[in-house]
Amino acid sequence: MSTPGEKAIALAQGLIRCPSVTPKDAGALDVLIEPLKKARFVCDRLTFAEEGTPTIDNLVARMGDGPPHLCFAGHTDVVPPGDDQLWSHPPFAAEITDGVLYGRGAPTRARSPASRAAAMDYAKAKNREIEGTISLLITGDEEGPSINGTKKVLKWMEQNGLKPDHCIVGEPSNATALGEVIKIGRRGSLNGRLKVSGQQGHVAYPHLAANPVKGIIEVLAKLYDTPLDYGSAHFSPSNLEVTSIDVDNPATNVIPASAEAKFNIRFNDRQRPDGLHTLLHEEISQTLAGTELKFTLDFDPPGDVFITEPGALDALLSEAVNEITGKTPTLNTDGGTSDARFIKDYCPVVEFGLTTETIHKADENAKIADLEQLTAIYRRFIERYFEAFAGNPDGR
């Protein structure tokens, strides 16, 4: 009889073999649904659509009833593999070599099999008499616009009396070794566009023109040189990164009329989007004061900062991690964004998964030993969770 870890490995290979590049499902949900139904999980396949966005298939699988309700959240979609020639193992072959599983999305696709195998093993040990509910929330657009996925699934769960009490998101959380880090929040994300306008002219007569390139360089240098803050108790300093500069000027002897830049700010809990809007507008106004240059500054809707205050949830997970790996994970909020930004509006959420070393790279991979340990950690955590929260789902 195969172990939970072995089941997770086989399931991870099945998922990797599905070329489910956002928004395509490519059979990925079926890979999960079949064994879950055999294990008597109730499976709801939810399809959501919105004008101007791709239609997305999602899954909610659950066992048990009532509180406490523990949810494991993940996604089956992946980013494109890029140039196949850069891969020494085909991106969708799920090859295992020297104890390493190769494939696009291996570190992220492995968490659904790990949590599924752990949940099934716990249910089997309890003869499916769970004192509460275990659920899996799986979406197909985490790597995409995130419009028809987790956000709408959570609303459906709430409307159907299935709102979780706590959630674990299985995004890769460790830099180099399993057990290093539990993420208890994420920085906010703000995309902006700056356009500086001047006066077009001949490069031989700069006094008859106003070069916006000089202005935008000075502005961006000032923004880079001015710290937004110095961090907080659980967050690193907010930072601004320029992602694009464009003047759309093919000529070498013409001063352009305008220059544009795109940038992103990852901000901590000392900042708010409207405050950043005001701060940047003031900095740019001061830098360009006394020149003939004008500017416009626009922002996309932000992804806000959030934190799950340290408490029982991360403590139980830390105990399980320590028991399996011997490590005591630190709590941090580094990295990019995830669907936890939606889940935090419904229940406390933390993130714990495999390592980030190869994510989105060619030859993306996950160590078999890590996948087996992750399954064991989830299994032990589930047991500790229901011991701690049975009869007290609102405990923190």
Score class of each variant (00 low, 15 high):
195 K>R: 14
203 V>D: 06
197 S>E: 13
181 V>R: 11
92 F>A: 05
352 F>N: 06
203 V>P: 01
204 A>C: 13
48 F>D: 09
257 A>N: 12
24 K>A: 14
278 T>Q: 14
325 T>P: 00
169 V>T: 11
283 E>W: 14
18 C>Q: 09
186 R>P: 09
115 S>R: 01
117 A>N: 04
371 L>C: 05
315 A>L: 09
64 G>R: 05
9 I>Q: 05
274 D>N: 10
276 L>P: 00
57 D>G: 10
305 V>E: 08
156 W>G: 07
30 D>I: 07
29 L>M: 14
332 N>Y: 00
54 P>F: 00
336 G>P: 00
56 I>F: 00
166 H>V: 07
275 G>R: 13
50 E>Q: 14
47 T>S: 10
190 L>K: 07
200 Q>Y: 00
393 P>E: 02
223 L>S: 05
393 P>C: 03
136 L>Q: 06
64 G>C: 09
316 L>G: 13
389 F>L: 15
170 G>Y: 02
52 G>N: 08
376 A>P: 07
305 V>H: 04
396 R>Y: 11
370 D>G: 04
87 W>L: 06
108 T>H: 12
231 G>C: 10
41 F>W: 10
346 Y>P: 09
299 F>N: 11
278 T>V: 13
190 L>E: 07
264 N>H: 01
265 I>G: 02
319 E>N: 12
148 N>L: 02
367 K>C: 03
68 P>C: 03
303 G>W: 00
159 Q>Y: 01
183 K>C: 04
287 T>C: 12
220 L>D: 02
197 S>L: 05
51 E>G: 13
